[in-house]
Amino acid sequence: MDLDFLQSLMGGEEMAAAETAYQDIWVVGEVSGEGLTPATRALLGKARDMANALGVYVKGVLFSAPESAGSEMISYGADTVYLLEGAGLESFAVEPYAEALARQIESGRPEIVLFNATSLGGELAPRLAARFRAPLFTHCMDLGIDEAQRALLATVPRLGGEYYEILISPSLRPQFATVEPGVLPAPFADPYRFGSVERVTFDDLPAGRVEMLGPYAGGLPEPPLSRSRVIVCVGRGVQDTEGVELARRLAAKLGGQLAGTRGALDEGWISEEQLVGMAGRTVRPALYIACGVAGAIQHMLGIAKTECLIAINTDPKAEIFPYADLGVVADAKAVLEELNKKLDNTPA
């Protein structure tokens, strides 16, 4: 049958474009324990909103996951879920994983592929982006769509999150992004949503050349204080070495390090390397817990770039309180003791 007239009616170019066009939003998800990780759920919710704006489908991708995880993806917004499996995909290995995903992308031609900015996403997204000569926006704090250009708008952190830049790649497809876990709102599940879960089996994936050998039990070199993510700081107000020990234990539990003020140094509780402030280290942790610290300007200068500052001090007029995200008027030792106790009782 001669369809030329139809083609000219519909615009030949558009039809040709439709054949090769990249469309749909894919979410490469992760499963832990019982089901999808919270970050994966949130990513599906975001993908759903963007897909509605573009008028396309959301497709989920999981590696060696149970059918139930596929159904869960549908309840959070996916229309189709691909469960990739086969020799090499049983547990994470970057080369077979990347190869399977690349083949799936080649045949499915998504316009956007989203990952969580976890280790899995961090391993796969750059490799896939390089393979497709495509843009990759990493650690996104938000995502949007420029509807006129039909392109992803990615809000990425600069200078470690002091400000953000909005990036767009108008012409390259697919577009890849990793989204920082915990920044997107949790979506609602709709257990009655309809969709399909498809198993895709690969039988000729390359063997991974990297061997994952399990947890590392040995000691690790302490990172310098200036790069520590969590710091528990003692000032003269922790009273004695017992207070310092409680602070050290809390730091260890939070995966952080102990530091101190000049007051603490003078008491002999900390070493020169652990002094924070004008005469000591400048730090920029995500969390700084100041215990019995007055908040002298010389000390505060060293912690100006702390993201979350918690101060415990018995003096409600302590200088440190106006800087703190949370000020606690209480005895530092007693609160440290309670914190250690509560953290012991919560399962990791």
């Binding site: 400000y163 390259l172 309180f321 800087y323």
Partner: peptide, 19 residues
């Protein structure tokens, strides 16, 4: 192939609470 559509600044840190 990547363009910037400008910068966004997070809000100033809000004053915390004292409890």
């Amino acid at each position: 192939n990547i363009e910037s559509r400008g910068q966004v600044f997070p809000p100033e840190r809000e004053l915390g609470t004292v409890v």
